[in-house]
Write a protein that binds this DNA or RNA. Structure first.
Lengths: 182, 182
DNA sequence: AGTGCTTATACAACGGATTGCGCAGCGCTT
DNA sequence: AAGCGCTGCGCAATCCGTTGTATAAGCACT
C-alpha cells in the first residue's frame, strides 16, 4: 500500500484539507494514482490517531468549515523510514486492456467508441500536465525538481497510452473493414 | 474490479489450471497486471460456485493432480455483459514515483540505487515482451491480433517508464554533483 | 542427506479499497 | 423555484488484496 505515504508526501510541502488532497491526487501524484475522498478522510483520521498529522479548524464564510492538516515530526520520521525501504513493483490495472485481450468476444464498434472516449480523456490530461510542466520549468526547474519529475511521469504515461491506442484503433478499423467485406 | 473478468478472458482461449493462470498473468495480460496464486484460486472457487466455470480432475504422475477449468456458457454471457459496459479509468500505483515526489526528504544515493534495480527489471521484461511480440508477428499477426495488441501495451509501458527513469537518473546525478560541490 | 526450486492446491486473518448513503450551504443556470 | 455542481465532511458494509501458513511430490544440485 502507501496511500498514507502519498498523503504524507503531499503534506510535507503544505498543510491541506482532505478536500485539497483529493484534488491534488488528481493533479501531481495522482496523475497516475487515484484516491477517493472517503479513503482520504479515513486515512487522515488514522494518521491523526497515530500522531503523524494534526489539524486545526478553519471556519469559512459561505463554505463549510474545514480542517487543515499538517505533518508532525513523527509523520516525517515515518516518511523517512518508508523512503529507505525498497518500493514494490508498480501495478497497473487497465480494464480496457483486458477488454482488448478478450477482443474476440467483444463488439468491435463498441470497443472503438470506448477507445475514442478514453483517448479524449487522456489527451485532456496530457494537455493539463504539459501546461503544468511548462509552468514549473519557467519558474526554474531546479526549485521544483521533484514536482517536475512527477509531472513528467504523467506526461510520458499519457503519451505511451495514446500511442498504444492509435495502434489498437487502426487494428480495429482493419478488422471492421474485413468483416464488412465478407 | 475485474480479476474475475481477466480470468474469464484467459479461459476463453483454453482450459487451464489455477497454476497455469498464475503464470499467464505474468505474461500476456499480467504484463502489467499482477495476481498471486491465492487470489486466483479464491476467484476460481467463487466462479465455480456461480457456475461460470467448471473443472475436471486431471491426475498426473510425478506431479500433484490438477483441476482444469473451462468457461461455461454462463461465464461467456457474463463476459459479454461486462465487455459492453464502459471500463473505468486505468489505475497505476507506482510507489517509486511517490518516493521521487517526496525526493527532498529522501537520500539521493538510495534513490539512485533503487532506480537502477527497477530499471534492470523493466529492461528484462521489455526483452521478454519484445521476443513474444516478434514470435506472434511471425506466426501471423492477424491470427493473434488481440494477444499481439496486449503485448504491445506492455512494451510501450516499459519503454515509457525507462525513458522517465533516464530523466530521473540524470536529475539525481546533477543533484549529487551540486551537493558535493558545496 | 540436506537444501531449494517447481508444480499444484488451499485456508485464515487482516487490512486496504470501493460503493453506497447522508448531511450542509452557496452560487449559477434554466 | 427547481435542479445542478462545487465545497466540505463523514459512516457503514462489503469486497478485494496481501501475507502467512500448510500440504505434497518430484527433481536437481551440493
Amino acid at each position: 500500500m502507501s496511500l498514507r505515504h502519498a498523503i504524507l508526501v503531499l503534506l510535507q510541502d503544505q498543510e491541506a484539507s482532505g478536500y485539497d488532497l483529493a484534488r491534488e491526487f488528481a493533479n501531481s501524484i495522482g496523475l497516475v494514482w487515484n484516491a477517493t475522498h472517503q479513503q482520504i478522510y479515513l486515512e487522515l483520521g488514522k494518521l491523526n490517531d497515530q500522531r503523524m498529522v494534526n489539524f486545526r479548524h478553519v471556519p469559512q464564510e459561505g463554505k463549510p468549515d474545514k480542517k487543515l492538516y499538517s505533518i508532525t515530526e513523527e509523520g516525517r520520521q515515518e516518511l523517512i523510514r518508508w523512503l529507505r525501504k525498497p518500493a514494490g513493483p508498480a501495478r497497473i490495472r487497465d480494464a480496457f486492456m483486458v477488454k482488448v485481450a478478450g477482443g474476440e468476444l467483444a463488439d468491435t464498434q463498441t470497443l472503438i467508441n470506448e477507445l475514442e472516449l478514453l483517448a479524449k480523456q487522456r489527451r485532456e490530461r496530457l494537455a493539463t500536465f504539459e501546461a503544468l510542466a511548462k509552468k514549473l520549468d519557467e519558474q526554474g526547474r531546479e526549485q521544483n525538481l521533484f514536482s517536475y519529475l512527477t509531472v513528467r511521469r504523467g506526461i510520458l504515461d499519457q503519451r505511451a497510452w495514446l500511442q498504444w491506442a492509435e495502434e489498437v484503433r487502426q487494428s480495429l478499423h482493419t478488422d471492421l473493414a474485413n468483416a464488412s467485406a465478407t
